[in-house]
Design a protein around this nucleic acid. Structure first.
Lengths: 141, 141
DNA sequence: CTGTATCCTTCTCGATACTG
DNA sequence: CAGTATCGAGAAGGATACAG
């Protein structure tokens, strides 16, 4: 079901169990990029609207100016985000999703939704695991 | 500095525009974890089957023994992967998705599929971006 | 306002060696 | 086979200053 051999690509990822696990594969490179902490948040936030640099920075708690700039540049380079500079003073730069970015947004949003839905289960699992590891340390020094 | 001065701020992740962007939010923590490079691959590979440690290591090109161990421990702690130790010699440890992990797998797989489907578009966007940046450099301002 | 450039700390990650 | 432990290189990331 995950045969990547449809884009006329030269990658020999025909094996459904092996697909793109090689490091030099394009899919791996792209996956590493969009699976990025900040990229995920930016794409999730640019949900059908335009935001300015400062708005993004203010909304994403904890992001530094540098990392936001770097992230936006990467997303722009990958064709996921469109950057519009308005020649006014003070400068105004708008960011919005491209059609490609919008198609990715649906998937990203599904990931966010899953996290929101199952966060209590994950938290419970962590507590359980930590308790178990703790008792093992006590019982078997 | 994890005090976002939320004196009267409510933990309201239901807001579609603000949701979980604060760093101390559980969703952010979990998102950072599952958006991890290796976690993504492991979950994608454990698609309805059981794999041994060595099988995973051999399949995921480029992963070190250390990172695979760390990743698997995290996934086990989060309740996404079940680890089964068989008391035999030589040791045999099986890894498989838990029901919670399976529910996440669907979303992860969608992300992988998106990447496979759109990798050529992303590659084209990168080429275009690089060419544009290059010509700007040539056009010495 | 929206960056770029620089320095510097942090911490991930890989290589290696060793254990049950 | 399946880890654990340790260490060092190098990247990631934050703080700051400054420019357009």
């Amino acid at each position: 079901m995950k045969s990547p051999s449809d884009a006329g690509d030269t990658e020999e990822c025909g094996d459904p169990f092996q697909w793109d696990t090689r490091e030099d594969c394009d899919v791996r490179q792209i996956l590493d990029r969009i699976a990025d902490k900040w990229s995920l948040l930016v794409i999730a936030l640019l949900d059908g609207r335009t935001l300015r640099f400062t708005e993004l920075k203010r909304t994403i708690d904890g992001v530094s100016q540098r990392m936001l700039t770097v992230t936006l540049r990467q997303l722009e380079r990958d064709g996921l985000v469109k950057r519009t500079v308005h020649p006014v003073v003070p400068p105004r730069v708008d960011y919005e999703l491209t059609p490609l970015g919008m198609s990715l947004h649906d998937t990203i949003q599904a990931l966010v939704t899953w996290t929101e839905t199952h966060q209590s289960e994950v938290a419970a699992a962590r507590t359980s695991y930590d308790a178990r590891a703790d008792s093992e340390l006590t019982n078997a020094p």
